[in-house]
Design a protein around this nucleic acid. Structure first.
Length: 415
RNA sequence: GCACAGGUGGGUGAGUGGUUAAAGCCAACAGACUGUAAAUCUGUCCCUCCUAGCGAGGUACGAAGGUUCGAAUCCUUCCCUGUGCA
């Protein structure tokens, strides 16, 4: 078994579980901070560890353009390169096909696109996207898909979904033939001189290839599972029938996990929820389900309650850099003048190092002064809030309190 | 004292006879942000009024006068700032 997912507890449609990847055992539902260019913007890896981030994202498109897959591979894959010993998931670049729409041309074979960095021309196909992701060496990699734009008419959504399905088959085929090329365990992997204690524990990891299990023991990463896993992606636009068909076709190809893609692309939030809910019905109950690109704190709680196991979103990190902070009392735009003399903590109910130490007045000053520290502290808080929220969700589900937890979220007035 | 160069909206700084309540940038204020082309983007930013519009008045380019149909722009005097020479 090169990959495994164990369900632990369930409450309604919600469930908790453990996802075993080469570099970490991940407790689900999990929120995955986004670190597009091998960096969760503004936050260092040791702080991410302290925040208990279990898995972070990287982006194939960005890393392929810079520094280049070869460089990353030679420096030990993404884990070695960015000195992150826990799990990593790379997105295939499919989303960039969508978001860089002015710079690309899509055909059956793949996507020709212009680099946003220097305008140079490149080509991604399911095969080359797999090759790149194998070279980057994330624990979980994603099939090369086309994120269908919104709105899309019926014909367009169908054609797009069908192409994603064909690309999924090609992705899998290439992956199965080349997955042994993953860069782990090579002698070229540098051996870091640092040792970082885990949170609440003075013990250091013996080496970067070691991880700590839930039970507290150190294990060589390859004992978890020796290989990368490739997830398939469901598309189908906002059409339930297409989503169902996409799920069936993707499942038929066969993946160890399934992602719901093509959402949070501009559609109304209510529609997002509706499509998520209906798509989940068609996904295997005993495999991880990854909802790509969501959401607000309220939304990730809600999606977890619907049975989503994995989520990622740039919102906490980007919003933080823009001065929007998520707290137990709602959103705080720390740039507002009203906080200029506020001596209180950002979130009185938060125990993160930012809320523990700094006042709103100071955070507002840092932001207004354009200090880099503003980005750092704001991001730490937002990620802390997200990861904390998910921890509470897991706890509630394991206690069978899913519905109660959710009700506190649902009772909030909608804007 | 003399000679130059200047004085523009919170700041900086364009504009040197009419489409100028006055560019751009900054500051300030508000909003957006959902598999990251994002330390980004958008809006407001003299006052008053309303039927809220590329609406109507008022005030404004150091001060006061003047020329002109019309002046931030031209002229006169004064005030102030900088530089140089005594």
């Amino acid at each position: 078994m090169s990959f495994s997912f164990h369900l632990d507890a369930g409450s309604g449609n919600a469930r908790t579980g453990r996802l075993l990847t080469p570099h970490a055992e991940i407790e689900t539902p999990v929120f995955m901070p986004v670190g597009t260019a091998a960096s969760v913007k503004a936050v260092s890896q040791d702080i991410l560890e302290e925040l208990t981030a279990q898995i972070i994202l990287g982006n194939t498109y960005h890393l392929y353009l810079r520094p280049g897959v070869d460089i990353v591979r030679k420096v030990g894959g993404l884990h070695g390169f960015m000195s992150w010993r826990r799990a990593i998931l790379t997105d295939s670049g499919g989303f960039q096909v969508f978001s860089l729409n002015e710079l690309r041309k899509v055909t059956e074979e793949g996507v020709t696109f212009r680099s946003h960095l220097d305008g140079s021309s490149h080509f991604f196909s399911p095969e080359s996207a797999m090759e790149a992701q194998i070279g980057l060496g994330a624990d979980i990699i994603m099939a090369f898909d086309e994120c269908t734009e919104y709105p899309a008419d019926a014909a367009r959504a169908r054609a797009s979904m069908e192409m994603t399905a064909r690309w999924a088959a090609r992705s899998k085929k290439y992956f199965e033939e080349h997955k042994h090329e993953v860069p782990w365990g090579r002698s070229s992997v540098p051996s870091p001189q640092y040792s970082v204690p885990e949170r609440g524990d003075a013990a250091s990891l013996p080496s970067e290839n070691c991880v700590r299990t839930k039970s507290g023991t150190f294990v060589l990463s390859t004992q978890y599972c020796p290989a990368q896993s490739l997830f398939g992606i469901i598309q189908g636009g906002m059409d339930r029938a297409l989503r169902k068909e996409s799920a069936a076709r993707t499942i038929e190809i066969g993946f160890p996990g399934y992602a719901i893609g093509g959402l949070s692309v501009g559609e109304p939030r209510e529609l997002t929820r509706e499509i998520v809910e209906s798509t989940l019905e068609y996904l295997p109950k005993d495999q991880p389900r990854y909802l790509m690109g969501v959401g607000t704190p309220e939304e990730i709680v809600e999606y977890a309650s619907l049975g989503v196991d994995m989520m990622d979103c740039v919102l906490p990190t980007r919003a933080a850099r823009h001065g929007l902070l998520f707290t137990s009392e709602g959103k705080v735009s720390i740039k507002q003048a009203r906080y200029a003399q506020d001596p209180g903590p950002l979130d009185p109910n938060c125990s993160c190092r930012v809320c523990f130490r700094y006042s709103r007045a100071y955070l507002r000053h840092l932001y207004a002064s354009n200090e880099v520290l503003a980005q750092v502290l704001n991001t730490i808080h937002n990620l802390s809030f997200y990861l904390d929220t998910m921890r509470r969700v897991r706890h509630s589900i394991s206690l069978g309190e899913e519905s109660r937890f959710l009700s506190t979220v649902r009772s909030r007035p909608k804007p």
